[in-house]
């Protein structure tokens, strides 16, 4: 049995696919396992940390482990902007609280106004710098209209493709929103003017399911393929990187692939 979380890990790994030597950052179990799976299969050039400060060539399994990670290099936060972010040598897959049609995201606060938000969250963290400097993808474990909002996100924490937000003379050419992986589907920004477009549907999910769960129109071109399933080798790698099954707690109910959404 393949779980929906494992399918999403596999889809994150596909999003990370590259022949470049860049830092792959997956925030949360599914994107992180996706980065490890990509590195151990089709994208050996990918680089990643032990989750703290050292670069490792063998992705570090999640949770308690009997052997210490073996450091091959060093990439502390104190060097991160120089070496990975501002130099464009990174691809991050992150999970914001809100996403809009322009690919703008919010991690900072909800409702009210900025002086007194209804709900304070993390703050913008590194999202402004990530979005203006390197490739980013998004993972959403519960695809719905609370995440994929109808208007703009409440506090624009990362730059997207909104022409109204662009200053004349500013450099926006490195904004590179790549994939959106959710519990329903895979999308990208491949429509006209970077409109969000359906790339593949997970087994058992319809176009209508996706549209109903998204607060803005999703472009559908022709027959939409089914999202590829991980093979036995990929599943074995995922298991080796997540022996405690953190992935089982990411999507509500940890459903198998193919159950009606």
């Amino acid at each position: 049995m393949i779980t929906l979380a494992e399918l999403c890990i596999h889809a994150c790994a596909e999003a990370f696919r590259t022949d470049r030597e860049i830092i792959a950052t997956g925030i949360g179990p599914v994107p992180r396992l996706g980065a490890g799976l990509a590195k151990l299969t089709h994208s050996p050039g990918l680089m990643m940390t032990d989750g703290e400060a050292y670069l490792v060539e063998q992705p570090v399994p999640l949770g308690p482990r009997s052997t210490a990670p073996k450091a091959a290099g060093h990439l502390p936060f104190s060097r991160f902007f120089d070496a990975a972010v501002w130099s464009g040598r990174r691809h991050a897959i992150v999970t914001p609280t809100q996403i809009d049609r322009f690919g703008q995201t919010n991690l900072s606060c909800l409702g009210g106004d900025h002086a007194r938000p209804r709900t304070q969250m993390l703050g913008v963290r590194g999202f402004p710098g990530n979005s203006i400097h390197h490739r980013n993808s998004l993972f959403v474990p519960a695809h719905g209209t609370r995440t994929f909002v109808a208007g703009e996100v409440d506090m624009v924490s990362s730059a997207g493709y909104n022409p109204a937000r662009r200053l004349p003379g500013g450099h926006y050419g490195d904004i590179d929103l790549h994939r959106i992986i959710t519990n329903l589907c895979v999308m990208d920004f491949g429509g006209p003017d970077h409109a969000v477009r359906l790339v593949s549907l997970h087994p058992g999910v319809s176009v209508d399911d996706v549209q109903a769960a998204t607060g803005f129109p999703v472009l559908v071109e022709g027959q939409v393929p089914e999202t590829a399933l991980p093979d036995a080798d990929a599943l074995a790698i995922i298991q080796s990187l997540d022996p405690h099954n953190f992935r089982g707690s990411v999507i509500q109910g940890n459903p198998p692939v193919g159950r009606e959404a």
């Binding site: 402004p128 203006i132 400097h133 624009v156 924490s157 730059a159 200053l167 500013g170 490195d174």
Partner: peptide
């Protein structure tokens, strides 16, 4: 820096631009 362009950080923090 380019950081902050296209986000709410620049207006909310009262940041200016330079050419």
């Amino acid at each position: 820096t380019r950081v902050g362009l296209g986000t709410d950080v620049v207006p909310l923090a009262g940041l200016k631009t330079v050419q």
